[in-house]
Design a protein around this nucleic acid. Sequence first.
DNA 1: CGCTCTCGTGTAATCGTTTACATGCACTGT
DNA 2: ACAGTGCATGTAAACGATTACACGAGAGCG
Lengths: 345, 345
Amino acid sequence: MSDAARDESAAEEALPRAARIQDVARLAAVSTATVSRALAHPDRVSPEARARVMAAIAQIGYVPNPAARTLRSQKSRMVLVVLPNLGNIFFSKILRGIEETLFEAGYGMIIGDLDGSPEKEARFTAFMAGGQVDGAILLNGHVFSEARAGIPLIALCEAIPEAAIPQIEVDNRAAAQAMTEYLAALGHRRIAYVCGPAGNVLERERLRGYRDGLAAAGLAFDPGLVFPGDYSLEAGVQVGEGILAREGRPGAVFCSNDEMAIGLMRTLISGGLRVPQDISVAGFDDIEFAAVVEPPLTTVHQPRRELGQAGAAVLLDLLAGRKAQPRVRLPTEIIVRASTGPARS
Amino acid sequence: MSDAARDESAAEEALPRAARIQDVARLAAVSTATVSRALAHPDRVSPEARARVMAAIAQIGYVPNPAARTLRSQKSRMVLVVLPNLGNIFFSKILRGIEETLFEAGYGMIIGDLDGSPEKEARFTAFMAGGQVDGAILLNGHVFSEARAGIPLIALCEAIPEAAIPQIEVDNRAAAQAMTEYLAALGHRRIAYVCGPAGNVLERERLRGYRDGLAAAGLAFDPGLVFPGDYSLEAGVQVGEGILAREGRPGAVFCSNDEMAIGLMRTLISGGLRVPQDISVAGFDDIEFAAVVEPPLTTVHQPRRELGQAGAAVLLDLLAGRKAQPRVRLPTEIIVRASTGPARS
DNA sequence: CGCTCTCGTGTAATCGTTTACATGCACTGT
DNA sequence: ACAGTGCATGTAAACGATTACACGAGAGCG
């Protein structure tokens, strides 16, 4: 074997050098303009020329260079999805909904995991400002760095009230109210609430809904029954320990997400309480595991995949220059499972 | 208010037109080459010039155009991550590990959710061939479309034995063997196994490990104790129903992932069996919820975030032209919780 | 027959960077 | 004093597509 044959990762046909539009044009005996048009506007090219171009493309395996295309047309056909924590399973189904809708429209998806880092914010802002993406979907509840990047943005799941961008979400307030009323209808008078992180918009809505629900059921709001949390399993565990330790425990606990509800339930059960006989527990989100913990968790179902699809659809409207709905609200549903039951008389 | 002032989305300073390197150069009174160098090779530019360039950049808010940069340098600083199902929570932590490692190295992440669609395969292949990404991480267990796209690839979590690309994973075989031996050590003689999808590489390894474990414990392999599954909760439920219905049930069941183990446990418990008193159940992966189901699940812990980090690190080696390890194996750990216990004498 | 219109095509400018090469200047060593 | 060296900088040629504009050939029409 000669030296020449050996280098360039053996047995490859000597540096194939990706085909360019020029190569296609030459092979099809047309100009590069015609090749470009055959791909972008097939109807503006004669059938014969189109056929020759397609054949040439297939023959040499031509793939258009996206960078060149983006540079010239100022459209990247990419969307940035910013989220606070990629490790949080709540987002996975939403991402899937986004991805499938974007894909159908010919868009790709870049993921930005914010992770609380300002450095990351800066880079994602640059993605937007630099034309790396044509639009962005924000799942993180705030517009960072005054990201008036000049590209369409939408807020998904967490509304951003101060930003004039489309909002896609469920009606958190109404859903929380409905769950609170449901617990009241079971006969519970002392309904506790476990919060998400303070200051969170979504959380404000849910807390408000909880208060609305109490009011609608003719119950007084008792600040002593509101526990701070942060959406983590551990927070649920801590609240559970608090409840076990105190006098006069609530008859029902409504947690503003499922993870906390699950952590709470486990702690209460370990502490000797029976759920729902001694205490009812409800969650919010309806993550996959809500159905398989013991007892299965009563919760508010959010249509996560559909939320993702709807968000992507609105962004696509914006990108296509169509008028987009400023606010989309998807319906929730209370899923009654076994973690809630009637109050003891 | 005049018409002219009203159009172009009110109150914006009349079409700011993103700043180009040319504008920076003019403002800093240097050439574009110097601006470019000030950013890419700060040490090759005099401190004074660098300071002027940086000031100019800050003043006009210049952000380099990634498309132009990619076109010229043939490097996109983007990596494609291909996975079989974005909705599967198993991947979220891995993605996070990948993202953070890539980010630190200045790379962005494009996600491709394969979803069993050949159309999607084709597009992702184009991403690679077109130079949209510099490298790819495959989580899907096969190299599609002869994706010898000419860019570095690595296989993460699911080895691709027929491809000569680096593999990063845990030692599935050894881990499955260890779990099987652990169950045998508890005194179980009839240890069942619930498979993943047939043909899956990862699954082949785990099944082999199960057989190794039986052999090491001096137990005979009984094909009647191997149940087909597909990694879904429902598959676990079905196997559970099968076990409840049959004569002579196994003393322990080892499921090749946690979801199936959880579905199985719930079904067995609903059917009146006690776990682990009547039957032990073990899983694989250690997803978040393994710890919070009732009883908490004994399982094989995979360091998912670290797997993501390691995979990204190997790919970065390749991208930097460094020699990469052809195979990285991260350690697993058997996490003993409450779903397994001694065999009844 | 000549005019206009439409259609398909080609020519070439352009998008915003990076970087090979050239230039000029200030040292250094003989 | 001069060649040699190295550094900071500028000039201009790529990178690979899209697309405005121009052009020629028919078609349609009075």
